[in-house]
């Protein structure tokens, strides 16, 4: 499936703001809400994407080019992983873990929003590399 690349970037910008507020307020409920958004995004039903298509996209021109939907969807799953670790940190009262995991998710979202660089996507090959070799 092909999508407008500005959709995931808009989502990354909103995610960055939400995660920045999580860091400042240290509110686990807000992180839990973002985790749900990540989960929906991984299932191709991101509410931020919905907002983009409903309210932002109509005000923009058509995209210069489209992109594959799979990489940003995978990145949302990676974001969900970090959000879960952050929630475990909050639940266990390990603030450093909660802040560290939230900061990692924020870094990825920020790089995507500001530079169009998908850090989550890059982890795919790194994870596969750790697994035993397989030849064609």
């Amino acid at each position: 499936m092909q999508i407008d690349p500005r959709g995931p970037r808009f989502g990354a910008a909103v995610t960055s703001v939400v995660l920045a507020v999580v860091l400042v307020t240290q509110n686990p409920w807000l992180l839990a809400a973002q985790a749900i958004v990540f989960a929906l995004g991984a299932a191709d039903a991101s509410p931020y994407g919905l907002v983009f298509r409903r309210f932002v996209r109509p005000r923009l021109g058509p995209p210069a080019e489209t992109e594959d939907a799979a990489p940003p969807r995978f990145a949302q799953a990676v974001g969900l992983g970090f959000a879960m670790v952050g929630l475990i940190g909050f639940a266990a009262g390990i603030t450093a873990l909660a802040l560290g995991a939230t900061a990692a998710a924020l870094l990825a979202a920020f790089l995507n929003a500001a530079f169009g660089f998908c850090l989550g996507c890059e982890t795919y090959l790194l994870i596969r590399r750790l697994q035993p070799g397989r030849i064609q």
Binding site: L23, L99, L111, F117
Partner: peptide, 19 residues
């Protein structure tokens, strides 16, 4: 939290420019 936020944003800008 604020210190973590600032450090993350600085790291993000530096990393983004290097990349």
């Amino acid at each position: 939290g604020i210190a973590t936020l600032m450090a993350t944003l600085v790291l993000g800008v530096v990393l983004g420019l290097v990349l």
